[in-house]
Computed example of a mutant assay.
Amino acid sequence: MDDELGHRITDAAWRMLAEKPLAALTIIEIAESAGTSRPAIYRRWHSVEEIVIDAFLHHVEGAVQTDDALAPPDALRNYIVSLGRFLGGRVGRVIAEILGRAQSDPGLMERFHAGFLRRRRDSGRSLIARGQQEGHFRADLDSELIIDLYAGPIYFRAFARHAPLDETFTRSLADQVLLAIGTRTGSAEGAG
Rank of each mutant, 00 (worst) to 15 (best):
residue 4 E to I: 05
residue 5 L to I: 13
residue 6 G to V: 03
residue 6 G to E: 06
residue 6 G to N: 06
residue 8 R to W: 06
residue 9 I to F: 03
residue 11 D to S: 06
residue 13 A to W: 00
residue 15 R to D: 14
residue 15 R to N: 12
residue 17 L to A: 04
residue 19 E to W: 01
residue 19 E to K: 10
residue 20 K to T: 11
residue 21 P to K: 10
residue 23 A to T: 11
residue 24 A to V: 05
residue 25 L to S: 00
residue 26 T to F: 06
residue 26 T to A: 02
residue 27 I to R: 03
residue 28 I to P: 02
residue 30 I to F: 01
residue 30 I to S: 02
residue 35 G to N: 11
residue 35 G to L: 02
residue 37 S to M: 02
residue 39 P to M: 03
residue 40 A to K: 10
residue 41 I to K: 01
residue 43 R to Q: 09
residue 43 R to V: 01
residue 44 R to H: 05
residue 45 W to M: 05
residue 45 W to Q: 02
residue 46 H to S: 14
residue 47 S to Y: 04
residue 49 E to Y: 00
residue 51 I to L: 04
residue 53 I to S: 00
residue 54 D to M: 03
residue 54 D to V: 04
residue 55 A to Y: 05
residue 57 L to W: 03
residue 58 H to M: 07
residue 59 H to W: 08
residue 60 V to E: 01
residue 61 E to L: 06
residue 62 G to C: 10
residue 63 A to E: 15
residue 65 Q to P: 05
residue 66 T to A: 15
residue 69 A to Y: 00
residue 70 L to N: 00
residue 71 A to S: 14
residue 74 D to W: 02
residue 75 A to Q: 05
residue 75 A to T: 08
residue 75 A to N: 07
residue 75 A to E: 07
residue 76 L to F: 06
residue 78 N to F: 00
residue 80 I to C: 05
residue 80 I to A: 06
residue 80 I to N: 07
residue 82 S to V: 04
residue 82 S to I: 01
residue 82 S to A: 15
residue 82 S to W: 01
residue 84 G to I: 07
residue 85 R to V: 03
residue 90 R to W: 04
residue 91 V to N: 13
residue 91 V to I: 14
residue 94 V to H: 07
residue 96 A to K: 10
residue 97 E to Q: 15
residue 99 L to M: 12
residue 99 L to Y: 12
residue 99 L to F: 09
residue 101 R to I: 07
residue 101 R to T: 06
residue 102 A to N: 08
residue 102 A to G: 06
residue 104 S to Q: 12
residue 109 M to W: 02
residue 109 M to A: 11
residue 110 E to W: 00
residue 111 R to Q: 12
residue 112 F to Y: 15
residue 113 H to Y: 06
residue 114 A to L: 11
residue 116 F to E: 08
residue 117 L to N: 09
residue 117 L to Y: 12
residue 117 L to V: 12
residue 122 D to Q: 13
residue 123 S to Q: 15
residue 124 G to A: 15
residue 126 S to Y: 00
residue 129 A to Q: 13
residue 129 A to C: 07
residue 130 R to K: 14
residue 133 Q to H: 09
residue 134 E to G: 02
residue 135 G to E: 08
residue 136 H to S: 07
residue 137 F to L: 08
residue 138 R to E: 10
residue 139 A to S: 15
residue 139 A to H: 11
residue 139 A to I: 13
residue 140 D to H: 05
residue 141 L to C: 02
residue 141 L to W: 05
residue 143 S to G: 08
residue 144 E to G: 06
residue 146 I to L: 07
residue 148 D to C: 05
residue 150 Y to G: 03
residue 151 A to L: 11
residue 153 P to S: 07
residue 154 I to E: 09
residue 154 I to P: 06
residue 155 Y to R: 12
residue 158 A to E: 07
residue 159 F to K: 04
residue 159 F to D: 03
residue 161 R to S: 12
residue 163 A to K: 12
residue 164 P to Y: 06
residue 165 L to M: 09
residue 167 E to V: 13
residue 168 T to H: 11
residue 170 T to L: 10
residue 171 R to K: 15
residue 172 S to Q: 15
residue 173 L to A: 09
residue 175 D to W: 00
residue 176 Q to S: 14
residue 177 V to Y: 08
residue 177 V to N: 00
residue 179 L to P: 00
residue 180 A to N: 09
residue 187 S to V: 12
residue 188 A to L: 14
residue 190 G to P: 01
residue 191 A to M: 13
